[in-house]
Design a binder for these strands. Structure first.
Length: 268
DNA sequence: TCGATCCTGTAG
DNA sequence: CTACAGGATCGA
């Protein structure tokens, strides 16, 4: 589920539900979910109160009293939610923070690729130091993109997937952004000229901003809602919504990239 | 910079 | 059964 809009939706929901809550105890049901940290480390969060919930790229930071913080990453299938009764949780829940009022803050993750760590403030800063600019922040400008791409010959898709320069994009929204900017996913970023950079910058903002309300809605009303549909992502073999050509799929870094072979030429 | 790897679930 | 999945890290 989680790219920037989905993580933002999770953060807003957990923030509203759990800020101020007291953690009474912790249960790690699957050790892998705290790896490489020992599960017992999380026990130190017992007796602490939740001060705030924030997003840094695709990371979730839950600040606690006592100078501590939880760093949560959802990876592919994770979800962080507050449930009414910490004793009644889904089978795929990996970590349970038992709240004083009986509710539970839980990491639910079928694939167990997600993780939660308990860190001191300095350690947290250290771990998040490499995280790039948030594409919805004011710091994300076309000029920033120019300097960030710099002399890198990396394919556009790879550059956008890398969380160091820009933090929060993933496989879906990278595909959507490149499609809107009409940039071929394999095109080296250092060859993009200012008009393409401008288009890419705008495309990223548009794609994320349009996805956010949908993400919030689907977390607000779980259950009935058809899956989101995209302009290119997961549309291999279907007609391009712009030109009618068949959407193609290539592999980059072991992941699928969807694109329109006609709209997204080797563009400068 | 690429490929393997961490896991489990689901679709074909 | 195989292929693939909205992510990231690690070692070669």
């Amino acid at each position: 589920m989680p790219e920037l809009p989905e993580v933002e939706a999770v953060v807003r929901k957990v923030r509203a539900a759990a800020t101020g809550a007291m953690i009474q105890g912790v249960r790690v049901l699957r050790d892998r979910a705290t790896h490489p940290q020992a599960p017992v480390v999380l026990a130190e969060s017992a007796g602490q109160r939740i001060l705030s919930v924030e997003r840094r790229g695709k990371n979730i930071v839950v600040r606690l009293t006592g100078g501590l913080a939880l760093r949560v990453h959802l990876r592919m299938t994770g979800n962080l939610t507050v449930i009414p009764d910490f004793r009644l949780h889904a089978a795929t829940v990996r970590v349970v923070f038992e709240l004083e009022d009986g509710r539970g803050l839980v990491l639910d993750d079928a694939r167990v690729l997600g993780m939660v760590h308990l860190l001191t403030e300095p350690r947290l800063q250290q771990e998040l130091s490499g995280i790039g600019v948030d594409p919805l922040s004011d710091d994300f400008t076309a000029s920033f993109l120019v300097s960030a791409t710099g002399a890198s010959r990396r394919p556009a898709k790879m550059f956008l997937m890398d969380q160091h320069p820009i933090a929060g994009l993933g496989n879906i929204y990278v595909a959507e952004s490149l499609f809107r900017a009409r940039i071929h996913p394999a095109h080296p970023v250092n060859e993009l000229r200012r008009p393409r950079i401008n288009a890419l910058h705008q495309a990223i903002r548009d794609v994320l901003q349009q996805a956010l309300p949908d993400a919030i809605a689907s977390y607000e009303h779980p259950g009935r809602h058809e899956g989101m549909s995209y302009r290119v992502y997961d549309r291999e073999g279907l007609p391009c919504l712009t030109c009618g050509s068949l959407i193609g799929r290539i592999a980059q870094g072991g992941r699928s990239t969807y694109y329109c072979p006609k709209c997204q030429k080797e563009f400068r």
